[in-house]
Design a protein around this nucleic acid. Sequence first.
DNA 1: AGGCTAGACAATGTCGGACATTGTTGCAAG
DNA 2: CTTGCAACAATGTCCGACATTGTCTAGCCT
Lengths: 238, 238
Amino acid sequence: MDVQPVPPAKEPRRPRDVAQLLAALVEDKKLGIGDRLPPEVELARRLGISRSTVREALRQWESLGIITRNKGGGTRIVAEVSTRSLHLPLTVQIEADSLSRMLAVRRPLEIEAVRIATRVADEAARRRIMLRMLELMEVYDAGEDWRPADRLFHAAIHDATGNPLFAKVIHQIHRAFHDLYDAPFDQPQLGASTIPAHRDLAEAIVAGDEGKAVAIMSAIMSDVDEAAIQIARGLHAG
Amino acid sequence: MDVQPVPPAKEPRRPRDVAQLLAALVEDKKLGIGDRLPPEVELARRLGISRSTVREALRQWESLGIITRNKGGGTRIVAEVSTRSLHLPLTVQIEADSLSRMLAVRRPLEIEAVRIATRVADEAARRRIMLRMLELMEVYDAGEDWRPADRLFHAAIHDATGNPLFAKVIHQIHRAFHDLYDAPFDQPQLGASTIPAHRDLAEAIVAGDEGKAVAIMSAIMSDVDEAAIQIARGLHAG
DNA sequence: AGGCTAGACAATGTCGGACATTGTTGCAAG
DNA sequence: CTTGCAACAATGTCCGACATTGTCTAGCCT
């Protein structure tokens, strides 16, 4: 071993992770979701690095789903940026029954989220769930597109668990759906038959009836899973 | 509206996703895990794009855990790459109760895996589960380190579900554990009290007793979760 | 005055070249 | 056979330029 004098604590610049520098800057400027990031040239200037390096870091953030970039337009933050975040990539092979496999994994997560929400949700969260359910019913009865309202309703349940990881993992699986097929769940009628059951689900959650809530959610998941697989089969055939 | 003749099916180059071009090249050269990627300049030459663009795509792959790059050394493939691979990033915020949140998500996944394995495992899978359990017991009774055997046992259960996604998502959470704390589950005694119950678990799975298997797994998970949280609390205090 | 269009501007995408830094490898000396 | 050194190779960073496209504003036409 040659004795080379490695500077131990002297690290004025950390080339190891430029993204960390960016995160620190975003934190410092108190930028949040929906805000626009400064242009690349300004980022490069403020961080004292070249635009190429900034671009690589931004590309990394983009692949991580933290930002979205628009040529000509700006760069927008779409997920929370933090210097203390953990990145866990997951790679899956696309096969014939990928859809049913994803659904099989999503199912216990959604059901457990309902169980925990029923158990630990506070008053405000229960009110939000009721509110979202009523909005969903209103849209559904009016015959309009109820999918955004449905998403908000389930998001309210995920929030009620107090565990954002549920929402994130489930969202990860949803993204996988969209990557698999361009928009299989944009079929307007998919899962429509389960919407009336959402009223019972919300009421069971708010009432704290864990067994009933879980049972209803299980039934809903079964229906949706079956419908999704039917549609996927149709796509494969066609 | 000016009538501009948009080429509908003519897309000789897709600037939208350079990574796809790379994936096609990797697939064509039949490169697998552990193989070295050609140098960036050669990739740029073969794809007909500049090195800057290649580098951004490689950065994306790096953040997705597909490759690892070594300055001066080469670029190695560490995850299966093909045009039919799906890469899903998950970012979690590191907070005080990250551990309990991860455990809360892992719990329903592990339990569901047991449920499905009990339901659909074929004869060979059931034999493997029994075999792994016996090996685990042998190591445990001998007072040796039983953690590798425990991992193999649970991996056998995951395999028995016929759904590799279960193993992958659970493994993803395990990686999060290791990134959070260097090795919280290397505590030799963690979960040791649950090992005897593994015999009952294996027997219930092989016997096809779904209710019993799920109940035992729930109890095991509760014990392990509690122990893990205790240890984490100790780490925080110390 | 109001709406619409065209042009200037801004921001990202891509390119090409250059140099720095570091791992790798092969050769020669001990 | 081992060790040390030098040449090479590959990634990291930087710079400058142009292309492409969204955004905004000023001016024109109705």
